[in-house]
Simulated assay, not measured.
Amino acid sequence: MNLYKTAKWVVSAIFYPLFRIRITGKENIPKNGPVIICSNHTSNLDPPVVGITSPRDIYFMAKGELFEKPFLRKLLTNIHAFPVKRGMRDRTALRKGLEILEQGNTLGLFPEGTRSKTGQLGKPLAGAGFFALKSNATIIPCAIIGPYKPGSKLKVIYGEAVNMQAYRDSKASAKEAADAIMTEIGNLMENHHSQHASLDK
């Protein structure tokens, strides 16, 4: 068992009972071919939650500062994380992301680029749109609903693929593509929020 699968097993054993995680729409994630999973972002725990609920191994970007220590760099690399310089256009990270997709793998992105303090969706950065337009990946929106509190219910919803072909054909901007993806994430949150609330009663 490699380190990624070991980490996934360990985190799953802790998180599933602790947060009572429920998953909807896992069947929407293709079994093969390049995939980009785009999720809302409210907590530092979002990446591991997406990682353990996805049936496919996911590659995530992580802030470059974390890779400065050799031990941490090795650990992060072994669990499929790669560095990105925040606050600037990091061409190396963009190339790495496209390379991951070209190899038929899954890239995990948080289009907002940073955590939402209010739980409301923020405006997306152009990054998710860039990867969507520059690759032939299937784009799967994801919504994480519920607080990270022990014993509460945390719901992870994977929506149907976002049709990006019209944006690719019309040479849309990365920002327009990112906005379309964020709209789908927002729709997932809106459609499932009331259902999640009723489960908590």
Results as ranks from 00 to 15, higher is better:
N2P: 05
N2Q: 12
T6L: 15
A7S: 15
W9C: 11
I14W: 12
I14K: 06
F15Y: 15
P17W: 00
P17Y: 15
I23Y: 01
G25Y: 05
P30M: 04
P30G: 01
P30E: 01
N32M: 04
N32S: 08
G33L: 05
N40Q: 04
P48I: 08
V49I: 14
V49N: 00
V49S: 06
I52G: 01
T53G: 11
T53Y: 11
T53M: 11
Y59Q: 08
A62V: 09
G64Y: 08
E65H: 08
P70M: 06
F71A: 08
F71S: 07
L72K: 07
R73N: 13
T77L: 12
N78K: 14
F82L: 09
P83V: 11
V84C: 06
R86I: 02
G87S: 06
R89H: 13
R95Y: 00
G97C: 00
L98E: 06
I100Y: 07
L107Q: 03
L109W: 15
S116M: 05
S116V: 00
K117E: 10
T118S: 14
Q120D: 06
K123N: 12
L125N: 04
F130C: 11
F130N: 10
F131Y: 08
A132V: 08
T138E: 05
I140Y: 09
A143T: 07
P147G: 09
L154G: 00
K155W: 13
K155L: 13
K155E: 02
V156N: 01
V156M: 00
V156A: 03
Y158W: 10
E160V: 04
N163I: 04
N163Y: 14
M164R: 06
Q165V: 03
A166D: 12
R168I: 10
R168P: 02
D169I: 02
D169T: 09
S170Q: 09
S170E: 14
A177D: 03
D179H: 07
A180I: 09
I181N: 01
M182Y: 03
T183N: 15
I185N: 06
I185Q: 10
G186V: 08
N187V: 11
M189R: 14
E190P: 08
H193D: 01
H196E: 02
H196V: 07
L199M: 13
L199C: 10
D200V: 14
D200A: 12
K201H: 14
